[in-house]
């Protein structure tokens, strides 16, 4: 029995190494000089650790700006989703109104539509509204997500109706029932929705790529992708450091809230 456990753990650890090695390589590489990064065979630990790459990133390249853009967009999108998805989800789960089922079906249908299909007309719409290359242009299309509506609707459906009736007897307004009685009970779902939305927005690529047309509106993934394919494509140290800056906040956030992330995925099955 002892022998069996031993090799199972070996497989598990080898798997972990395979997952972690590229990240470790990136992190260590970001402290190497260009000369060391090009050396054959490559080094693992930086021989002469330098923060030059980060210095370039933050002082010569405009990464503080991209970082700020990413943060603004992700926070706004997250806030919007928490408010709107919980409201629509609540309405779909608990309020009776005409067309409720039709609306829910519509939400479920759009859940399946790939982003690639909608981005051209969305681009035309946003451009005609004069919002291209602006923060609203980056944020507005993502303020409500079908995934979030679905998640919140499922969660609200699980709450008993008696709570609402109790609120009505006590003379609460409908809005009061929603905001003071029902919403606080959905805290776990809100946490899941919030963290998943933030991560999704932080990593979002296609939309900011087409809508951010000048450098001062780039988000981090857009900047990193354009650096890696443009004139900086050979500046390996800079790219490694850039990747670290994109990845680290997400890793920290994920490790802090990972319970909510994996739980949300197990519940809804969608990332």
């Amino acid at each position: 029995m002892m022998r069996r456990t031993w090799w199972i753990y070996l497989i598990g650890v080898l798997g972990l190494i395979a997952v972690a090695a590229p990240f470790a390589w990136m992190f260590l590489g970001s402290f190497k000089t260009q000369g060391e990064l090009l050396r054959v065979p490559p080094t693992w630990w930086p021989e002469a650790p330098t923060t030059q790459n980060y210095d370039d990133l933050f002082n010569k390249a405009n990464f503080p700006r991209y970082f700020l853009n990413s943060t603004i967009v992700a926070l706004a999108v997250t806030a919007g989703n928490l408010v709107f998805c919980s409201m629509i989800g609540y309405a779909l789960a608990k309020l009776r109104f005409k067309g409720r089922n039709a609306l829910f079906l519509l939400v479920m249908a759009t859940l399946m539509v790939p982003g690639m299909v909608t981005f051209v007309p969305l681009f035309v719409l946003v451009t005609n509204a004069g919002l291209a290359n602006s923060y609203p242009g980056l944020i507005l299309p993502f303020l409500v997500s079908p995934f979030g509506v679905f998640l919140m609707r499922q969660f609200f459906s699980g709450l008993p109706d008696d709570l609402m009736d109790a609120g009505r007897v006590d003379g609460s307004s409908e809005l009061g029932i929603f905001a003071r009685i029902m919403l606080p009970l959905t805290r776990p779902a809100l946490a899941t929705l919030g963290i998943l939305t933030f991560l999704g927005s932080w990593n979002n690529f296609l939309w900011p790529l087409v809508i951010a047309q000048t450098e001062d509106k780039y988000t981090l993934p857009v900047a990193l992708a354009l650096y890696s394919t443009g004139q900086n494509a050979q500046n390996f140290g800079l790219l490694m450091a850039g990747a670290v800056v994109v990845v680290i906040p997400v890793l920290v956030m994920f490790l802090a809230f990972q319970r909510h992330v994996t739980k949300g995925i197990a519940i809804t099955g969608i990332k």
Partner: peptide, 30 residues
């Protein structure tokens, strides 16, 4: 183990692609 295996999923695909370009580099690659 669970969190470890899940890590790549939450990271930006752009950053991952950049890292993997170095992992797959011909001579100096991991």
């Amino acid at each position: 183990f669970k969190v470890g295996y899940y890590l790549p999923v939450v990271t930006s695909i752009v950053a991952i692609a950049v890292i993997w370009r170095f992992v797959l580099a011909p001579d100096a690659g991991l």
